[in-house]
């Protein structure tokens, strides 16, 4: 099959970007979307042109490195997968495809399709952990965790930190990302002692970064490669409210 690609090219964070048009000829539907970009890049190198910079690593949908906007949708037209898991069988020969970086003020473009998602790391640094020094843990079975809570915590913990939720949100909010970590830890007994300061610290960090506010569009869940539910955003709001109205350190 042959595809026409309009790809965002931007030399540096301060340079002006633009769409460039390329053709991907004789690609086949078994290929992944990123392998198609590899083929285009090999052609560019053969023509002594700079290849398209795009972030990728594991190519199996778990590391969260990759992520571009394909025809207006973060990670492309399929559901429940990262860009690396998108295959060309979702397209047909002759299709025109627009490929852009994740767009958000909090994610400055570094080059072409690569953005800086360091803000997500800073949100975790502001409280997305349990403060347990190595060596100080009790026996793993000393604390029981009801299976349904463990399962729900896992549903939230599956977040791969790709940032598609931010790119999909009309406000460029990081609420689903933040809610996933707050919920994961709030659902477990291990997360209780720091529950209040965790949610307050993380939300304060979100507000200090260039993210917008959540207005319950739900576009984040639709774009999430792991299908993380917006219900966790409701849980985050409850956690935040509790932190504001309950006296500190009381159940």
């Amino acid at each position: 099959m042959n595809l026409i690609l309009h790809v965002w090219r931007q030399a540096s964070p301060t340079a002006r970007g633009r769409f460039e048009t390329y053709t991907a000829n004789d690609v086949n539907e078994e290929m992944s979307f990123l392998e198609m970009l590899d083929v285009v890049n090999e052609q560019l190198i053969a023509n002594n042109q700079e290849p398209i910079a795009f972030e990728h690593d594991c190519r199996e949908g778990i590391c969260g490195s990759c992520g571009v906007v394909v025809n207006g949708e973060p990670h492309g037209p399929h559901r429940g997968g990262a860009t690396c898991q998108l295959h060309l069988r979702h397209f047909k020969s002759g299709d025109e495809i627009w490929i852009e970086p994740f767009r958000a003020k909090a994610f400055p473009v570094l080059k072409d399709l690569i953005v800086d998602r360091g803000a997500l790391d800073r949100i975790i640094q502001a409280g997305g952990y349990v403060s347990v020094r190595t060596g100080s843990a009790p026996d793993a079975n000393a604390v029981l965790v009801p299976k349904q809570y463990a399962e729900q915590a896992m549903n939230a913990a599956e977040c791969i930190g790709c940032g598609a939720c931010v790119a999909a949100c009309p406000n460029a909010a990081a609420m689903l990302f933040t809610a996933a970590k707050v919920s994961h830890l709030a659902l477990l007994p291990q997360g209780q002692p720091e529950r209040t300061q965790r949610v307050e610290g993380m939300v304060a960090r979100v507000n200090a970064e260039a993210f917008g506010h959540c207005t319950n569009h739900g576009a984040c869940e639709a774009a999430c490669p792991k299908g993380i539910s917006v219900d966790f955003i409701a849980r985050l709001n409850r956690e935040l409210l509790k932190a504001a109205v309950l006296p500190p350190q009381e159940p």
Partner: peptide, 23 residues
């Protein structure tokens, strides 16, 4: 090996559980 499991559980790693709540 056993200390690792203790440490990870204390960090909040959501390992699979039985209905009893045990690992």
């Amino acid at each position: 090996s056993s200390n690792i499991i203790d440490q990870c559980v204390a960090q909040g790693v959501p390992f699979a559980r039985e209905y009893s709540g045990l690992l």
